[in-house]
Nucleic acid binder design. Structure first.
Lengths: 153, 153
DNA sequence: CCGGTTTAGTTGAACGCTCAACTACTGGCG
DNA sequence: CGCCAGTAGTTGAGCGTTCAACTAAACCGG
């Protein structure tokens, strides 16, 4: 308290607002496209992706929550919904009676396979096509630094 | 159709996932802090900011929607809520009978003034403190390019 | 000045996320 | 062993966003 606020200078202000516009705009565009073309929000797409990459297409709920950067509550609701569309099913965990294992069904895998090309094309169009290779490299370093910084604090 | 999907190579994959983690993590953290400390989501904070910078603290709904990058519907709902907390009020537009003008009240300005220092500190901690000056510059260029690219397509 | 097209803004339902409270199980320590 | 703090996951209420449908007014060509 009583400590002077370190306000943003005009350059920082400009950077921050550009970042907001870009990241929100990008996510909104991809979310809209995915919803329109595949009937799922981007968050659900990410869940399916992570499951598809896991051994046996199975992951513990907590692990899946960590991988997708979502709260346990959010994941619970999401998996409930994915289960009711038949894309994921929940199983008892053999080693921990509290645990649940999410399993990507064949139907779910097919839905993902159908959604992927359009979505990847969208990521390319909206992100990679707009940047130079050197900017892509800069963006990777910046993002990794930020993500790392966020988890450490 | 029939055109091969240009999948992401491992480097692009890594960049994309880092960007997702960073931007989502950043927005989630700021949103959580703002909600906890000031009782408003980040989207509402942005609305108040834009209004506070406008002449007479007044803006047409559409202009406000454009400035905050939100849909008209979203803004309508948001302003309705802000009005019921007494932070914004709606007035008839003198030059266009279809129009509405949103006006930031003194109470709303005070709420913004109370929220701002903590929020700015958060932006600093989570974003600017983690990056070198040159990275901040890179991020500005990248973001402006992306934002520009999004509106043009 | 009339009729059709745009533009401004609102509305309600469906949906996803957050938060806090809750159940059930585990793991460690006395 | 028995207790108890911590962990896994779920649940329901409340909120914000989206989408599509809607009203009303402005604009524009004939």
């Amino acid at each position: 308290m009583g400590v002077m606020t370190r306000w943003l200078d005009p350059d920082e202000q400009r950077t921050w607002r550009a970042f907001l516009a870009a990241s929100r705009g990008l996510m909104d565009a991809l979310d809209r496209e995915l919803q329109r073309d595949a009937g799922m929000p981007h968050a659900y797409y990410e869940i399916l992706v992570r499951l598809s990459e896991a051994p046996e297409r199975r992951l513990r709920m907590s692990e899946l929550a960590d991988l997708t950067g979502s709260s346990r509550s959010r994941l619970s609701h999401a998996v409930a919904r994915l289960e009711s569309s038949g894309w994921v099913e929940r199983e008892e965990c053999p080693t921990d009676r509290r645990g649940q294992v999410a399993h990507l069904t064949d139907t779910g895998f097919a839905a993902l396979a159908a959604a992927a090309p359009g979505h990847v094309e969208g990521v390319r169009r909206h992100l990679f096509d707009a940047l130079t290779p050197s900017q892509v490299d800069q963006l990777r370093r910046i993002s990794e630094t930020l993500a790392d910084h966020l988890t450490r604090s």
